[in-house]
Write a protein that binds this DNA or RNA. Structure first.
Lengths: 225, 225
DNA sequence: GTCTATAACTTGATAGAC
DNA sequence: GTCTATCAAGTTATAGAC
């Protein structure tokens, strides 16, 4: 039988993903879990601690997996320059794999991650502190994959990539049908990831435009009537 | 002197951008505006109506401008295929211009837009219904700019682009210093936009990968020990 | 138009019986 | 461990004086 603690975590995960953190009351969560309101304070200390527990439950293994995949890939390089696609794949595949495992219930979790990307003031410090080193590690790999890109520019593009990915995660319900509609098959999250990666990779490889304030005459220069 | 109504809208815009909709109380908004709590119910009907008013105040002109720029560009094409960069520029420049105008106070507004992209269940219907036609119009332009891209794929990439842009908008405070640090000059949002567009455009033009489930052996196939 | 006062309700959290 | 009962605080919203 499922532990009460896990039932609460499952319900909270889903509720936070659906409604966001601030707008979701503990009462509605406990109603969804079918347990009493007081239980959440018994197992977790507070609402914030509950969110933290929801995140930690799955993120720990994801982060480990990310680092493992990256190191494995780099080990096979023998000094050659890493490919952006592979670095991205090492980072994204643990998350996408989570969605693909129906029993894992990682599906709402991914949506929650997408949301918290926007409500980032909520991402508890502890999570930030655990994700931080992983991000640094991947930033370093990207830097070596794109040695000619200014650090400034790399940082901006990394943010763009994070935002794009978070959007797909938030859109999961919509995207799900989209992915499956292709040939009537079941949604295939691995192939979905393989459609996201080319977009991001191409973005990272895009040439850095020289400033061109009003060169696009037809659009930006036609201010005056 | 500034109207009370506008003082409320300004304060609400900033507060919602800072803390999100659900987590921000009307009381804190009114404290920031320096007016009484009852005023908000006099001028606006409810908290939700206030959010709606905040959005409508600036989005109406932005949307008009977007359509104007797009039509102007297409008029000059004389039947040639539109360029992705120019379609994106027509869509994005009204927003980025808003940030660039300090007096306009559009700065918090853009952050708010970035947030609501994630809390999209909150985006009031009216706003959705006004933005919808604009999105359809631009989707059509993109379709003509990329006639070889499957509609399925175009849709996914459009979502990715929206997410990436929203992230930059949310990051505005951080990005601001980044943009200015480049050569000690003041933050230049026009050039920031010109750094975002190549990323997105390259993403749209990326080749559609054939499915390659486990071809990236080093990373995805090394499941078994 | 702007304020005070307060209604009506929901929230997170706790104490204590079982 | 799980429940009921309840607290204290904060919420949106309204009624009515000025």
């Amino acid at each position: 039988m499922i532990e009460t603690k896990d039932k609460i975590l499952d319900a909270a995960e889903k509720a936070f993903a659906d409604g966001g953190y601030a707008a979701t009351s503990l009462r509605s969560i406990m109603a969804g879990a079918g347990v009493n309101v007081a239980a959440v304070h018994y197992y977790f200390r507070s609402k914030e601690a509950l969110l933290e527990a929801v995140l930690m439950r799955r993120m720990e293994t994801s982060n480990r997996e990310r680092l493992r995949l990256l190191e494995e890939y780099e080990a096979g390089l023998a000094g050659r320059r890493p490919a952006v696609e592979e670095v991205l794949r090492a980072f994204l595949s643990p998350t996408f794999r989570m969605v693909a495992e129906p029993a894992q219930g990682g599906y709402p979790f991914v949506r929650l991650l997408g949301r918290l990307q926007a409500e980032s003031d909520l991402l508890p410090n502890i999570v930030q502190s655990r994700l931080g080193p992983v991000l640094l590690r991947f930033a370093d790999a990207l830097r070596r994959a794109l040695p000619d890109l200014a650090p400034n520019e790399l940082f901006l593009r990394a943010r763009l990539a994070m935002g794009a990915t978070a959007q797909v995660m938030r859109d999961a319900p919509m995207i799900k049908s989209l992915a499956g509609a292709q040939d009537g098959a079941l949604p295939d999250w691995n192939s979905m990831m393989e459609r996201v990666i080319p977009f991001l990779s191409a973005g990272f490889h895009a040439p850095v435009e020289a400033h061109r304030f009003h060169t696009a005459g037809a659009v930006t220069a036609k201010e005056s009537k």
